[in-house]
Structure formats: structure tokens, C-alpha cells
Computed example of a mutant assay.
Amino acid sequence: MPDTWLRVYPAPKVAGETIYSVIIRCVVCQLGLTTFLVLWTIIGVFIIQSFEGPQEEKIAKDFDKEQNQLVIDLATELRQITPLSPKWKQAIEKRIEEERRLTMLAVTRGARLNPGQFWDLPGTFLFAVYVMTALGFGAPVPYTVWGRTSALIYAILAVPTHIYLMVNASTCVVVNVDEYTQHLKAKLDDKTAKANSTFENTRDNPSHSRDSEFLKVSNEWKIRKGLRSILSVFCFGRCIPLATVVYYLLGLISFGVLRERTALESVMFPLEFTTTGGLERVESHVRILYGFYVEGAMCLLACALATLKRHSSAALADVTDSYRLFNTEKCEECPNNEERGKI
């Protein structure tokens, strides 16, 4: 079966085509799905933030107010007790227990012990990216009923649309990159073969062994051979391992080194973008950039899976055949497996 994927742009309109067919073609293509996903994400971000943002501010203000009231109550009670009396200890222990209970209750309702806010527009955008990519690593949880309902409705359409779009886009990218790589290799191999043939002929001719032509051909042959070796190294694994390392280093520099984090924090920069890692104190523009970074990482993962599916090795095929991991549709026209494999 040849590799197939959705068209990047909708196909041209044909004579007699209905407006309904035109709309379907425009929506169900990679550009149409991307537009729908972007608009759906913008709508979801604003709706979820409209519920969770005010609730987060209200919980934080109520928490501060109740803490201040506890301090006032403790000071009032201590003034009514004789100094150094045993009742001082009892009053302080009582207020400490009330503070612990109040803190636990406020945290369960979404309050933060440290100053900061997550449910602003950049934070909600990052939450939408976590939901859309089905990553969920360190993502916060909406606390209001309407916020959770909005997030669920957003996920019902965003998650399958994003997955389907990633599958088609990654297949399109992998196939085109493979074709370009093969074309580049073939072109380079052809030039290398010609340079090698010219080099051999020139070397075997004693009358040209010391000529400038021989040196020129020799240098060209060495350059072509070196380019062929470099291309083989960079194209190892269809460039996926190299792209993964480069992409991680880009995140390490952008979200660690440039933000003046320690060496360990820079290496483990994804941990900072979690609720327990202090995400509510991360700058708004950094949250937006990290959301796009996560989306790029998911695109890279989709390309890796598409490459693995398209170029599974013989060893992997042997393992799947040995343990009967896949179902294969049998070809009734082919008399045996060998001919079916050739087809």
C-alpha cells in the first residue's frame, strides 16, 4: 500500500460540484484542520479562563483574608491571657491547627501557597496544549464545574483532531523528506562515481600523474566522498535522532540557560512547567513559548512514529512475525509470501 495522507490544500473545484462538497474539502484538509484547531483552541482558552481565572483570584483573596483573621484572633486571645500562662501554649497550638486545616482546605480549592497565578490567558493556553496533545504532564486541574465542563467539551474535539492531523502531517513530511534525501544521495553518488572514474583513469595514466588536472580530480573525488560520508551520518535514522537532540538542546538553552537557571534546572527544564514545579510563577510569555515548544515536540514524536512505521527494520519484522503481533490482510492473487512481498 502506498503512503497516503490528507491534502495540504483542498483540491480544485470541479464542474457540477455542490457547495457542500466544497466545504467538506476545505475543512478536511491539513490546512483546514489546522485552522479549525487554532480557532477551537482560542475559543476554549477564553471560555475556560473566564471560569477559572476569577475563581482563582477569589480563592487567593479569601485565603489571605482568613489567614489575616487567624492572626488577629490569636493576638486578641493572647492579650486576654496572663503572660507565660500554660494557656498561651494551648492557644497557639489551637491556632496552628486551624491554620493547617485552613491551608489544606484552600489548597484543595485551588489556592497557591506562593504568590502567582496560573489561570490567566497564557496559563490557560498552556493547559489547552496539555489537553490537546494528551500529554497532561504536570497540568493543573480546573476547579469550577463550568471550567471542567468546558475543558471536557474542548478535549472531545481537540484531541482526536490533533492526533489525526499529526498522523497526516507527519506522514507527509516523512515521505517528502525521504524522497528529497534519496534524490540528494543519488545525485551525490552519481557525481562521486564520475569523479572516482575520472580519478582512476587519471591515476593510471603516467603522463598525467603529476599534472594539475590529476590534483584537481583527486581533490574533487575526496570532497565528494567526504560529503557522502557526512550525509550518511546526518541522515542516520532519517535524521530523527539528530533532530531530537537538537530540539532538546534548543529547549535547554531557551528555557534554562537564557533564564539564568542552574545547570540541573536547565537540564530538567520541563519539570518547572508543572503545578508542583512552580508553573504559576513562570512569566506569561515563557508559558506561551513553552506551549509552542510542546507542540513542536509532539510533531517530532509523530514524525518518529511515522518513520518507524514506514521503515521498520527486518529485525522488527522478524519479531512481529515470531510473536504474531500484527494481522496482515492476505492477498488472494499472490500464491505465496515471496511474491506477495515483491508486490
Rank of each mutant, 00 (worst) to 15 (best):
T108K: 15
T108A: 14
T108E: 15
R109I: 01
R109C: 00
R109N: 10
R109L: 12
G110R: 11
G110Q: 13
G110W: 12
A111M: 13
A111F: 15
A111W: 14
A111N: 13
A111G: 15
A111C: 13
R112D: 00
R112H: 15
R112Y: 06
R112E: 00
L113N: 10
L113V: 10
L113F: 07
L113C: 01
L113H: 05
L113M: 14
N114A: 10
N114D: 11
N114M: 06
N114K: 14
N114V: 12
N114L: 12
P115W: 01
P115I: 03
G116W: 13
G116A: 10
Q117N: 04
Q117E: 04
F118L: 13
W119Q: 05
W119D: 10
D120L: 10
D120H: 03
D120K: 09
L121R: 01
L121Y: 04
L121H: 00
L121S: 04
L121W: 07
P122D: 02
G123C: 05
G123V: 05
G123K: 10
T124S: 14
T124Q: 11
F125W: 13
L126N: 03
L126A: 05
L126V: 09
L126I: 06
L126S: 06
L126M: 10
L126T: 03
F127S: 02
F127V: 02
F127N: 02
F127L: 04
A128R: 04
A128Y: 02
A128L: 10
V129K: 06
V129A: 09
V129E: 04
V129T: 14
V129L: 07
V129W: 08
Y130W: 06
Y130F: 11
Y130Q: 15
V131R: 09
V131L: 12
M132A: 09
M132W: 00
T133A: 04
T133N: 04
T133C: 09
A134D: 15
A134E: 12
L135F: 04
L135M: 08
F137A: 00
F137K: 00
G138T: 03
P140W: 07
P140T: 07
P140D: 06
P140A: 07
P140L: 10
V141F: 06
P142N: 07
P142S: 07
P142R: 03
P142L: 11
Y143F: 12
Y143E: 11
T144S: 03
T144I: 05
V145W: 12
V145P: 05
V145A: 13
V145C: 06
V145N: 12
W146I: 00
W146G: 00
G147F: 09
G147M: 02
R148N: 15
R148W: 08
R148I: 11
R148F: 06
R148Q: 15
T149N: 04
S150L: 02
A151M: 08
A151F: 08
L152I: 12
L152D: 11
L152Y: 11
I153W: 14
Y154I: 08
Y154N: 01
Y154M: 07
A155S: 14
A155D: 02
A155Q: 09
I156F: 15
I156S: 10
L157A: 15
L157D: 01
A158Q: 13
A158T: 11
A158F: 11
V159W: 03
V159M: 14
V159H: 07
V159I: 15
P160M: 10
P160N: 09
P160C: 08
P160T: 10
P160L: 09
